[in-house]
Design a protein around this nucleic acid. Structure first.
Length: 438
DNA sequence: TCTGGGGTCCTAGGACCC
DNA sequence: TCTGGGGTCCTAGGACCC
């Protein structure tokens, strides 16, 4: 049996823990650059503010109803998430941290010694709320997909008191008949449209399609697994996370710019900044990468620009895996020069690190020692340099020591830097930001 | 005037290998 | 007339998730 615990309106709930004045009011949290709405309080949902809505479209509505809009504060949400996950890990045999606000639980064998599953789930919710201030809902079912269904319905129907268990045929059928197919985990906009065209409207109807049909129309084996999971046939196991963190298979850092950019040196400043951050995450995870991607995006809302709006280029590092910022930067410069076209107007850039593995496994040496390596000090000194860099930035704040290309002269912000006008404090992760109570 | 960021998995064609 | 089969890796792109 799987459990799925999900924080209600997670980002908004995190903000409310430290700003009780936000209770009972419409509150939204905005994406980077204060661009889109990414989390909404129940009151904001009631105003009809959609998930992902551009902020400029809802600003006036929010103001009319004495609402609040906050810039996203990932330092706070990440730390609150860690606390929630730690409470969960204390109460079940295994936890899979699925996202910042969601975890799958292994509920196997929990009924025998500890009362009913429902009682356990209620206790878990109370504990998380008491220890972290975050309200949650719990879904329970024999497959992950059904646990998501149960969680979804538990959120939707207050009379369920935040909990739903789908472990009998009749409960499964009732739940699936009540759920629009577009709300099934794994059915996005495209598939929802296609299913509607075939007259499939509820999760129950989707659970009834044939294997051949699912494979043909829903992305091959992925679609077939989805259907089987809806039928109660598990196709995905629990992937337990250690210490409440998930080891990633790829690491990405990308940002929309504060303004449109055309000069390659401005783009290089952005790429340098993002790659430094990605490499820092890579080292924190204890891995090296051997595949590097750089991408540049143009404005996808400009009707004069035909797709593709994003162009990327990927390199398998000829010198083998590394986590060394300067070595990665040397390759990234080449990729950027390959991608860049003078005259194009760019709105966003990003980097992706793939092929992650711990150091020391089968290092590939280059036959021709590419120029990029000439700049790299011997391996031991290189590692020490990165360790020192990470220590300094941890101690004195992110970006204290960084590659020169990521620094702009003068005091004005870098041309690629975005906006965040409504950011709350890092209450739980910075001494200077600790909440004061008078 | 304004439209996010970081992940996962899968597919498909081409290069290349034996 | 008639041009193999089976595998891997690379690269790019598409769909989905929160």
């Amino acid at each position: 049996m799987f459990g799925l615990v999900d924080g209600n309106n997670f980002y908004v709930s995190c903000e409310r823990v430290f700003q009780p004045r936000l209770e009972g009011r419409p509150v939204v949290v905005l994406s980077n650059n204060d661009g889109n709405v990414v989390s909404r309080s129940a009151e904001a949902k009631q105003l009809g503010i959609a998930m992902g809505a551009p902020y400029f479209e809802v600003r006036a509505l929010l103001r009319r109803h004495q609402g609040h809009a906050l810039s996203s504060n990932y330092a706070l949400y990440g730390d609150m998430s860690r606390r929630v996950m730690a409470r969960l890990a204390d109460q079940v045999p295994a936890v899979e941290v699925y996202s910042i606000d969601e975890a799958f639980l292994d509920l196997h064998g929990l009924t025998t010694f500890c009362g009913t599953l429902d009682a356990r789930a209620h206790r878990m919710r109370r504990d998380v709320l008491a220890c972290t201030g975050i309200p949650t809902c719990v879904g329970m079912a024999p497959t992950k997909t059904l646990a998501k269904v149960a969680n979804r319905l538990a959120k939707q129907y207050p009379e369920l008191q935040g909990i739903l268990r789908l472990d009998t045929e009749s409960r499964r059928e009732r739940a699936l008949r009540a759920l629009p197919v577009a709300e099934v985990w794994g059915i996005g906009r495209q598939y929802a449209q296609l299913l509607a065209a075939h007259g499939i409207r509820t999760a129950w109807e989707l659970a009834g399609v044939s294997e051949a049909w699912a494979r043909k129309h829903l992305g091959g084996v992925v679609g077939w697994r989805l259907v089987q999971e809806l039928r109660g046939q598990p196709c995905q196991g629990l992937l337990p996370s250690e210490e409440g963190t998930l080891a990633r298979q790829s690491i990405r850092c990308s940002r929309s710019f504060g303004q449109r950019l055309t000069a390659i040196e401005d783009l290089w400043g952005a790429v340098t900044t993002y790659l430094s951050r990605a490499a820092e995450k890579l080292r924190a995870q204890g891995d090296q990468a051997h595949i590097l991607t750089v991408f540049l995006s143009q404005d996808r809302y400009d009707p004069r620009l035909p797709p593709p709006h994003t162009r990327s280029t990927t390199l398998t590092l000829p010198s083998g895996p590394t986590s060394h910022t300067l070595q990665l930067l040397a390759y990234a410069r080449r990729l950027l020069e390959k991608l860049y076209e003078p005259g194009r107007v760019y709105v966003k850039a990003g980097v992706v690190l793939d092929g992650l593995e711990p150091p020391g496994r089968g290092q590939q040496l280059s036959l021709f020692a590419p120029a990029a390596e000439a700049a790299i000090p011997a391996a031991g000194r290189a590692r020490q340099l990165m360790r020192t860099l990470d220590d300094l930035n941890r101690q004195f704040g992110r970006g204290t020591v960084r590659p020169a290309a990521a620094i702009t002269t003068g005091r004005q912000p870098a041309p690629w830097q975005g906006q965040a006008h409504h950011r709350s404090q890092a209450y739980t992760t910075r001494f200077d930001d600790i909440l004061l109570v008078f």
